[in-house]
Computed example of a mutant assay.
Amino acid sequence: MKIYKSVVACIYLALVVLSCSENDATNPLFYNLGYQEEMNVSYGNHSDQKFDIYLPENRTPNTKVLILVHGGGWTAGDKSDMNNLKDLIKQDFPEIAIVNINYRLADQNNPPYPMQINDISSVVNFLKSHKNTYNISENYGFIGISAGAHLSLLWSYAFDFDNNTNMVCSIVGPTDFTDPAYVNSEIPGFEELLDFYGVESDTEYLEEISPYHQATTSAPPTILFYGGVDPLIPISQGTHMRDKLNELNIINQYTLYPTSGHGWVGLELLDTWTKLKTFTQTHL
């Protein structure tokens, strides 16, 4: 009997060692589960195709991921612009992994679409292919600001073919380029925006790049923040998006700060984070 038990114990130990060797990335015996961060991880060949990743301690294959997408009118900006938000998330959500991305910036020869949507797809595919290395899940949330909010909404509504997005946040993001408040206005930069997109006023194309027109019943829970005196984004961009999500029975939350512009500070900023924090806790 003692010999039998010894043989069984040896077989069990061998199986454990074999299993560990085949799954090093997710086994705590082989993987450092302390806090880890990697800066400027390349997900493509272009110099702008980089992201920073912040991995929490004690992470598991169920660890959820927040992807941050900076603004800058599709032609400027940098992931460092999101560092304050990143620090807030690290403080209040120490169990969540954070991916702060750069993407290729548009110019006269390289329109934003589909280039920047393709970059988000590349980031997500990279994370999926390295999920065992990073010890993270395929459950993602997006937080975008301005142009980054537009990209976050558009990708989550129309290009997340595997439905991995659990939530998406738009802070002053454009949602509908066919909105008369855009088309019939003299909003600074709107004509330049259309020039960068490589179109004049082709309705079909404008609908293709508009989250409002791409949202379906499979859209993820969405939280929206807008300013009432924003010189760049008409109020209707937020209210129409809210109404469309309501029509589709998509969980959503909409906040308008009547006296704020294209961004805010003070009590409004505190309110934004309080609401976004609760929404993230509920839906991510």
Rank of each mutant, 00 (worst) to 15 (best):
261 G>C: 07
248 L>I: 13
241 M>F: 14
264 W>C: 05
246 N>S: 15
244 K>F: 11
248 L>F: 11
250 I>K: 02
245 L>N: 04
236 S>E: 14
261 G>M: 08
259 T>Q: 07
261 G>T: 01
262 H>N: 02
242 R>C: 13
257 Y>E: 04
252 N>F: 08
253 Q>G: 01
247 E>V: 07
262 H>P: 00
250 I>N: 09
257 Y>V: 00
235 I>G: 05
240 H>T: 06
262 H>S: 05
240 H>G: 09
259 T>Y: 07
252 N>T: 08
262 H>V: 03
249 N>L: 09
239 T>R: 12
244 K>L: 05
237 Q>G: 11
258 P>V: 02
246 N>M: 12
265 V>Y: 03
239 T>I: 14
260 S>E: 12
246 N>H: 10
252 N>V: 05
252 N>E: 10
259 T>G: 07
235 I>L: 14
252 N>L: 06
239 T>Q: 15
264 W>H: 05
247 E>L: 06
238 G>H: 04
246 N>F: 13
250 I>Y: 06
251 I>V: 09
256 L>M: 14
249 N>C: 13
249 N>F: 13
237 Q>N: 13
252 N>W: 01
259 T>R: 05
247 E>I: 07
251 I>E: 04
265 V>N: 05
235 I>N: 02
249 N>E: 15
236 S>M: 09
239 T>S: 15
251 I>D: 03
258 P>D: 05
249 N>T: 11
244 K>Y: 12
263 G>I: 00
244 K>M: 10
265 V>D: 06
256 L>D: 13
263 G>F: 00
246 N>R: 02
263 G>W: 02
241 M>Y: 09
239 T>W: 11
242 R>P: 11
242 R>Q: 15
249 N>Y: 12
262 H>Q: 02
260 S>L: 00
244 K>I: 09
258 P>I: 07
240 H>K: 08
264 W>L: 08
245 L>K: 02
238 G>M: 06
253 Q>M: 12
260 S>N: 04
243 D>N: 13
252 N>H: 10
245 L>G: 09
258 P>L: 10
261 G>N: 03
245 L>A: 08
265 V>G: 04
264 W>E: 05
247 E>R: 00
242 R>M: 15
255 T>S: 10
237 Q>C: 11
249 N>K: 13
242 R>E: 15
244 K>H: 12
259 T>V: 03
244 K>N: 14
264 W>P: 04
246 N>P: 10
260 S>A: 12
243 D>A: 07
238 G>Q: 04
248 L>K: 10
252 N>S: 14
242 R>L: 13
236 S>C: 06
265 V>S: 11
236 S>N: 09
237 Q>T: 02
258 P>M: 10
255 T>D: 13
257 Y>L: 03
